[in-house]
């Protein structure tokens, strides 16, 4: 079932065109990887889905961006609600300077929930889903900054999951982490995809091949190829794609 789709989307930062006619659709409960060299538009594309591009000046978007068949850029859409539906994890772990518990609870409090037991329950559930519970269950009141980088990133994942999104947007979630933490996060993604639709931007092709079902290759704002990950990595259709995945350029 198609969960996310873009139709002929173009995005301009002022005069500069960052996305050119991108049409792409993603299935529910799947992992889609966006790969391509730096500056090819993959992060920009990712940020369409929670309208984080709105925070930048002089951004113009044409085309349709559909989640559950609804254009999320049409007038009247509540952006804050959209961001509950599509959670985001950033490249550099960015836990708030609060306790571990309060970090995860933040999203709930933002959206007006203050039932103590419900918040507690959700925090525990999210930490378990992010495979962090065992490591922090005895220190929920400690500062989030006392955690290691890999743990902080999993905390950010838990924080995003607390809002019960249906989509998780990951912008190079492991690029700032060591290999062991990266492996943990990748295993996490395998688990999460059972219940969430995940889009992950990564400049690490091996990561894309390990975790994703489908891969989209971007270059200079264009979508060059989009296919099942196995096909992209065993027999890509476009030469450009092959050159990129074999490391011959980019």
């Amino acid at each position: 079932m198609t969960k996310i789709e873009t139709k002929d989307v173009n995005l301009f930062y002022g005069e500069y065109q960052a996305l050119k006619n991108i049409s792409l659709s993603m299935e529910e409960n799947s992992v889609t990887a966006l790969i391509g060299p730096s500056g090819c538009g993959k992060s920009t594309y990712l940020r369409l889905f929670n309208r984080m591009n709105d925070l930048i000046e002089h951004v113009k978007i044409t085309g349709e961006v559909l989640i559950d068949n609804e254009d999320i850029y049409r007038k009247g859409i509540n952006v804050d609600e959209l961001r509950i539906k599509a959670g985001m994890v950033f490249q550099k772990p960015n836990p708030f300077p609060k306790s571990i518990f309060e970090n995860v609870a933040y999203g709930l409090r933002v959206n007006g929930y203050n039932d103590k037991s419900m918040i507690e329950e959700t925090v525990v559930k999210s930490l378990k889903q992010a495979a962090l519970w065992d490591e922090v269950s005895d220190k929920l009141n400690k500062s989030a900054f006392e955690l290691s980088g890999g743990q902080q990133q999993r905390l950010c994942i838990a924080r995003a999951l607390a809002n019960s999104p249906s989509i998780v947007l990951m912008d190079e979630p492991a690029s700032a982490l060591d290999p062991l933490s990266t492996a943990k996060i990748e295993e996490l993604i395998h688990e999460l995809k059972k219940n969430y639709t995940i889009i992950i931007v990564t400049h690490n092709m091996q990561q894309a091949s390990r975790v994703s079902d489908r891969t989209a290759f971007f270059y200079l704002g264009e979508l060059i190829e989009y296919d099942l990950t196995v096909n992209i990595f065993t027999s890509p259709k476009k030469t450009q794609t092959e050159n990129y995945v074999t490391g011959r350029f980019g």
């Binding site: 984080m52 804050d80 509950i84 300077p97 999203g107 959206n111 809002n163």
Partner: peptide, 24 residues
């Protein structure tokens, strides 16, 4: 990055300023 993290969770600007930016 703190502001971005807050907005991405659906917080308004005012909430973000009050609860994340100012305390820091």
């Amino acid at each position: 990055s703190f502001r971005q993290g807050s907005y991405a969770l659906g917080a308004s600007k005012l909430y973000t300023v009050r609860k994340v930016v100012l305390p820091i």
